[in-house]
Amino acid sequence: MFEKITRSAVTTRNREALPLARRTVLSGAAALLLAAVGNRSAHAQSGPAHPAAAAALDPLPRLPTPQFNAAFAKVVGDGTPIEGQMTLDLPEDAENGNIVPYRIAVESPMTEADHVMRLHLFSTQNPQAAVATFHFTPLSGKAAVSGRMRLAKTQEVVAVALTSANTLLIARTSVNVGIGGCGTE
């Protein structure tokens, strides 16, 4: 129910004009949300011109689960993962959270000296944070994999890669989920 209200608030934000009569019909909770959304876009407009900086002002919809934090910390340790060398593709909107296609590709020469060894796929909101771990060798030729995953709810999906040269790489993508997968609810 709460999900639905959020969604309708977001949809109305995207429409230019909203008839006053319709607005009064909205429940108090939805109106509050609408106000919050309005504030946020005002923020973005008055904030720095740089789009990335403006996006950083947008808070994540939900905090990652403690399980994600633990699993992520175990892989990353005290290293600093680099962004930009890996792509993590998922649909922006997933109607059915039971089957969400993902595609991960890392830029790597895949030589004996420098290749991707491990690639972790994490969910920040699923009951189990570690979705998959992929292992590659130079014989793989390409550090790329695709498949289908479950998403319990709207969330950010995170991929972390570790190369043989001890470099950590990271990529993140947010997905809006319609009907959640994982069979918890």
Partner: peptide
């Protein structure tokens, strides 16, 4: 494995969809 040499391995969790599908690559020796 290709000719008994491991070149791709996936450890899967319960966050993988039913009827798991995987696409991956091999540099043909």
């Amino acid at each position: 494995h290709y000719d008994d040499v491991l070149f791709f391995k996936a450890e899967l969790g319960s966050g993988i969809s039913a009827n798991p599908y995987l696409s991956f690559f091999l540099k043909v020796p």
